[in-house]
Design a protein around this nucleic acid. Structure first.
Lengths: 151, 151
DNA sequence: CAATATTAGTATGCATACTTACCACTATGG
DNA sequence: CCATAGTGGTAAGTATGCATACTAATATTG
């Protein structure tokens, strides 16, 4: 046990590398399946399918991103005609986000690919290990990074 | 068990969130300690301390980044006078990267902070769980993402 | 109702990250 | 020695991600 732990023993570094691996696997599989959707975009589409009419701030909170970041994601999704933004009548600042028919179509086509690729992200692990890792990550996630308003 | 697994059950999503959490913890701790160093920059400094004279491509391979990405990182480190770039005599395309005295000083000051914060990244886990997660992540990491030349 | 605080979205700036393309230089083969 | 393949670094383009600051609209409170 060295006095100076190497990078490969630091959880922070491992998580970062694992995230790179995840992104790479995601992009490779999606591209191979003929789609041009990033993981963030998929998360957004999925969240909107489950909760139609969300505004951007709610969407950001749901999938764990910054308001500013989600703005760009939504813009790109709108550009690809997968999402429609409509002025909310309740709140004239807000946009209600809804999937377009094309968006729903793409999501349905992409979802099985995304589900399948989850195995490949953790390719080196057995089923039990994969399960254990998933459980540990869920537990390690403090899901309140962006919401200090829960006073 | 729903037919459509929610995002929170997908390893890919969990890894992404965990990475956000890691970044946030890292930045918070480093800022609190009065330093302005990102996790990538720390990795680079650490790697250069262990292997003085690396060129950018070797450095990138060592810590798992793209050549292009490391270019920007090194530029910022050079700007902060933590790293010096010298033309290599062996290969006039390459730069030999070396820590400056200030770079070494900063690294020594920052290292204990980084080591300490690793616990906080996985705050919700017990020591055993943290250990188990680390082991699983090491195993899950295929360390050949950037090197398809190992024929 | 007016003053204030809060919130939704945008814009800007910084820092990753990867792809592709390009230039300069090196190494290799014939 | 020369054509060519490979490598180091940069540049441009795209997409996250966050902080900060700003505008516009809403909610709250005196």
């Amino acid at each position: 046990m060295p006095l100076l732990p190497s990078l490969s023993e630091m959880p922070g570094h491992l998580i970062r590398r694992l995230n790179q691996q995840t992104t790479a696997v995601f992009q490779t599989h999606l591209k191979a399946a003929g789609h041009d959707i990033t993981s963030v975009q998929f998360s957004a589409l999925e969240a909107l399918a489950q909760n139609p009419g969300l505004d951007q701030a709610k969407l950001a909170a749901q999938i764990g991103y910054d308001r500013a970041t989600i703005g760009g994601v939504v813009k790109r999704l709108e550009h690809k005609a997968l999402v429609k933004r409509a002025q909310s009548e309740m709140d004239r600042r807000a946009f209600k986000l809804v999937l377009t028919p094309l968006g729903l179509e793409v999501l349905d086509a992409v979802r099985p690919v995304v589900i399948a690729l989850q195995r490949d992200i953790l390719d080196g692990l057995s089923d039990e290990e994969r399960e254990a890792l998933t459980k540990l990550m869920q537990k390690a996630l403090r899901l309140h990074l962006q919401d200090p308003s829960a006073t």
